[in-house]
Amino acid sequence: MIDNHTDNVYIAVAASAYRVNTKGEIYQLVSGAWLLLEDKPFDERPTPTDIQPVIYDKHCRNPSPTILRIAGGAAGQSGLIQALSDAFNKFRVSEKFDPCRVAWYKTSPSESLRYLNDGIVDVVITRNSVEVATALNQSIRLSPLGSYLIFREPLLLVGPLSNPANLDPNSDIITMFRTLRQAAQLDYTPRNAGTTDPSASFETRGDGSATHLRECQLWEEVRKVDQPPHLPAFFPYIPINRYPPLTKANIDASLNLYGAANLGYYTLTESSMYRLKPELHTKLTVYKHGQLNDPNDLLVLQGHLLVGARAQYPALAEHFAAWAAGPAGQSIVRDFRICGRSVY
């Protein structure tokens, strides 16, 4: 559709037409006129009793009754959600909006969409392409403006300094995964399976996260190229481990890094998580780094923000989403640093 307002940031058409201006205000087209949507909060939504949120209330002079509830994993652990929350409240104060508290719920991928659909949280930040596709296919009730791309994050293939698989950092990532499999395969026969130490092992995330899904995709690409003919189709191509075993209590993007560092394994991890653990850099080194300037790089994940249709304060949730995806929010993402180095 065509609209002549020069301050538009987004326009969306669902059951009705909506537009968001540069201040984050949301208007709905009703009988040919744009009407400003004001927050009329839904009844109190349930909150998960098994997760204690982290509250960010910078720039709130007094405890605000208004709260924006965000579910996410690695983006929260890296500190990005806090950086966006603090800058968003500073922006609201400068524009004469009331500040709000932000509650970050550290959730697993399966929990995030369920909480969004049930109205337990208002917003989900995810790099999981399956989650985004599921939501956009209307299995999840989203607001009319739905999904926003707010960052891209590189993945890293890291491993022991001794490089037992003899990886060539100049190779592409599929070739490097093939090399990992071949190094393990040298020690494998059907008779000694599980009884010998392989030349190379891989520490899996095993948690259904975006990084884990990309890891599975890479192993599948290896299978397509050179599936060993004498092994069943489900053979994992290389000894894969999970240390410690995944439980609801240890949903932590850094656990596979500790496992890899302590056991001398290779693993796939996020750039943000690797930067957050400098104490492991004496045991691990980076063999491949995703390139943000390459739109087809398999070691780059896209971070999406999804707004639920049952957000407790709908206009606030959309305001945050439009701001985060707009110039002000993107400057926070670009300038975000961990240990002095940019991440996104």
Rank of each mutant, 00 (worst) to 15 (best):
L257T: 04
I238E: 05
L180V: 12
F235E: 10
F234S: 06
L246F: 05
E203I: 05
N250D: 00
Y237F: 11
A249T: 03
L186P: 00
D187I: 03
H230E: 11
A261K: 08
H212S: 08
N250K: 03
I238C: 14
N256F: 01
Q217M: 07
R242F: 03
A184M: 01
T204M: 09
P190G: 05
L186Q: 05
V222C: 13
P198V: 03
R242P: 00
G194A: 01
D226G: 09
T189Q: 10
Y188L: 11
C216Y: 06
F177M: 10
T179K: 11
N241L: 04
L255T: 10
V225K: 07
R191P: 00
A200R: 10
T247I: 01
P228Q: 12
R205L: 13
K224I: 09
S209E: 10
A183W: 02
H230F: 08
Y188N: 13
D187F: 05
A261M: 09
R242T: 05
G206M: 02
F235V: 09
N262A: 06
F202I: 02
P244Y: 09
N241W: 05
N256Q: 12
S199H: 02
F202N: 15
T196W: 03
A184E: 03
D207R: 09
L180T: 14
G259Q: 08
N192T: 15
R205F: 09
F235H: 11
I238G: 10
P228D: 11
T196P: 00
P190A: 12
L255N: 11
Q185A: 13
P236H: 07
T179L: 01
